[in-house]
Design a protein around this nucleic acid. Structure first.
Lengths: 350, 350
DNA sequence: CATAATTCGGACACCGGTGTCATTTGAATC
DNA sequence: GATTCAAATGACACCGGTGTCCGAATTATG
């Protein structure tokens, strides 16, 4: 049982009382300065601010949290297997939070577990989170959004389409981005184009699929069921899903995979069978993760601005708090771009 | 200026006073039960615990943080470019923290910025962090450790070797792991083996280099300077560093890259030059990141148990707090294993 | 110039826990 | 049975902020 021996000779922390005494005002007045209360004499405000600056005083977040009944923490909730996306999102959120009093806490949850809801509820209520950012596919869960509303916890949902809840959405337009990618394949001369779809129940998977079908329909190309394979957004699933496509005769001359991991799986499968990419098979992925440039040939893909979206999400949450209360009721919409690398070529003359 | 309208009809949060009233004891007694104070009558303890269980009462972390002058947050500090490692580490830490009252907060810092120290100081003092985990190479910064000591902030340093500060270290033995990998190459018949080293100033880079040299020395193989190239632990640096090695005549028959990203760069460079891997060039990397299985051929590499190390680090920090006060003064040491995939073969007969 | 209206600042309670120290209780000792 | 002592519990201040409400100072008005 080690005794606690703390605070040996540390610079004693300044409190609001110290500042009040030094400024010759009451602590409440200092509090008003900190919180930018409008009903303050400019002189008083200047005086107190001066002292705060000189002393480098910073209010104790724990005390504020207790008094306000709300912590200065932004939660990040995800049940997503895509590490790259998660880290980019963290990066964006941290960028927005940097220099503010907010910190980010993270809660990965088990997709499928039926304790998820309780887990998240206790997460947000115990820590009295200021707000949370929810990543897809969890963000598509309306029950979760309702629960957060009930608990009085702000939230922003990242998504690939505007759901019923525009006010809380930060989105990218996956459907149109995929359509553009597929139009590019068609422009190169491809007609037999395979799709590796994402998992059922993922909104993004559906959006991407719709974009795929849209581009084909525009060009009057029919899509036999055999050219669509189901994947799980993982490398392994992309690898096995592509088997059925590559067994087809005639073989598709191009494959769109609904994310990069699966696209890497397609590439791997092609290699195993000795199919040359891009000469005999063109591949396009989605996400623009680093893997696209590590493999050979580097993969053509769709890039969506994850970091920027993370930043936007965090700003949307804390915007009111730090006094940038602009257009907070609009969904924030981002668009994606096709990144052309080496995995697409015109189909071999057949 | 939106008004704040909170707590509409939420289940009012239970406080320690409620529990005290229900149990017919003082709040201090309830506090003692919560904190497992030893000087409590067993009967009283049981009665209070019973009520706590029934009501599902959870103490307010903000209030505890204020009263104790210490928050229940574990910080993760890194200046490391390796996303995969960071996420694995997060995973390990979160695993250890799950079910406790602790949360994890993250602080990426700019390597090189001279504000780093102040940034971290304000991070740990403002939030009154319970403790922090520091990832390499930042973990090798002794000045940082001293500063944390001064501030009374617990810390654990992840590293590839035990520094002067064994008590706070969680380590893996990179040197021995690399030596084993290189012995494997030698056993396959390789004699001209190139090294792509990590950046100067990284302890892990030095350890890996030493392991490399050790294995060569054991086998009586000399290491000409030309067989060593400097990298930065990035894909691009691996790509360019391997240029000089592959230009050599005679060319090395194998290359050890100090991490997987650079190994992927070597593979890419080989592909650009039409050098067959593994027939004409064997490659071994380090870290066992997913990229090793995405490329062709899949890369032989060294796996170190990052998740387990993250878990160990977090447990080491909170161990005393949750009453598992075991061997906390020992460094926790982990060992790595060679993962054999497809990028190593005996050298072509020359 | 007296009075009312308005603005500004302060006293005090409170958020929900913990530390200190005094008090009560029961058993042990003489 | 009175005294002593240790163990168990409680009263109260305190951590460092914020909300409420009221009084003082300042200005506008009659």
């Amino acid at each position: 049982m080690a005794k606690q021996k703390q605070d040996e000779g540390l610079a004693p922390k300044l409190t609001i009382n110290d500042i009040a005494r030094m400024a010759g005002v009451s602590k409440k007045t200092v509090s008003r300065v900190i919180n930018r209360s409008p009903l303050l004499n400019q002189e008083t405000r200047d005086k107190v601010e001066e002292i705060i600056r000189e002393t480098g005083y910073v209010p104790n977040p724990q005390a504020r949290a207790l008094a306000l009944g709300r912590n200065f923490l932004i939660g990040l909730i995800y049940d997503n297997p895509n590490v790259q996306m998660i880290l980019s999102m963290q990066k964006g959120i941290l960028e927005a939070l940097h220099g503010t009093e907010f910190e980010m806490v993270i809660r990965p949850v088990d997709r499928g577990s039926n304790l998820v809801m309780d887990d998240i509820r206790s997460f947000v209520t115990r820590q009295r989170l200021f707000g949370v950012v929810i990543l897809p596919p969890m963000s598509e869960n309306d029950a979760l959004a309702r629960m957060l509303d009930e608990e009085g916890c702000r939230y922003v949902r990242m998504g690939s389409a505007v759901l019923d809840d525009a006010e809380h959405m930060v989105t990218s337009n996956d459907r149109e981005a995929v359509a553009e990618a597929v139009r590019y394949l068609i422009a190169q001369g491809h007609r037999r184009i395979g799709l590796i779809a994402g998992p059922h129940g993922f909104r993004s998977a559906q959006e991407r699929r719709e974009g795929f079908e849209l581009a084909l329909a525009e060009a009057g190309i029919s899509l036999p069921r055999s050219l669509v394979a189901d994947g799980q957004y993982t490398f392994e699933s992309g690898l096995s899903a592509s088997e059925s496509l590559l067994d087809l005769s005639p073989r598709p001359t191009a494959i769109f995979a609904s994310n990069d991991e699966m696209a890497a799986g397609v590439l791997y499968a092609a290699r195993l069978r000795g199919i040359a990419v891009p000469e005999e098979l063109s591949i396009i992925g989605f996400d623009d993760t680093p893997v696209t440039t590590r493999v050979w040939p580097p993969l053509t893909t769709v890039r969506w601005p994850i970091v920027a979206m993370g930043r936007a999400a965090a700003l949307k949450l804390i915007g009111t708090a730090i006094g940038e209360g602009a257009e907070v009721n609009e969904p924030s919409h981002f668009s994606s771009t096709l990144i052309r690398r080496g995995s697409v070529a015109p189909p071999a003359a057949s």
